[in-house]
Amino acid sequence: MKPGAKKEINFSDGYKFILDNETGAAMSYVLIPITLLLVIISFVVDRKKTFSALQQAGKRLLTILPVLLLVLILVSAVLYFVPEKNISEYLSNGNKYFSILVAVLIGSIALMPGFIAFPLSGVLYQNGVPMMVIAGFTTTLMMVGILTFPVEQKYFGTKVAVLRNVISLGIALVISLVIGIVFGEI
């Protein structure tokens, strides 16, 4: 998504969001100038160090690029089979405990920025989806990354990546439980 681009999502139950990609834009508008400024300062102070840093950056980027491309391909393929707009349908079906499991599963797979996930969650809550289901969905969305696993594996190894994701899944379930208790849903 280009900075400032608009993203339109039609959810299956008739809700429609048109979102300015503010987070993305803010990110690029902050990140890019700051980086450039720091490079210039660094260059003025020590040319040699700066060159070696830029070289190192290029090298590291090239090392991770194939894995990153793989992740992006996975994301787009999965999104084709499980479109974002169907998510509300999956979450609002049936038994609430079963819904938590579905929510946790979808949250672990999906990659969705917060500026889409939270408005969606707000609508789901108004439609009667329990808070604990929403908590399971948003927490796993943030902490567990099945599709980004290849990148994590590349940096930290298979074992650590698996352990971290499993622990995060556990934390998400605990959060969902506590939310359920506090909101009187259990």
Binding site: L31, I32, L38, S52, A53, L54, A57, L61
Partner: peptide
């Protein structure tokens, strides 16, 4: 790319 440039500056 910008993230990696920042990381490398940090390292140096």
């Amino acid at each position: 790319p910008f993230v990696f440039v920042l990381i490398s500056l940090f390292e140096v």
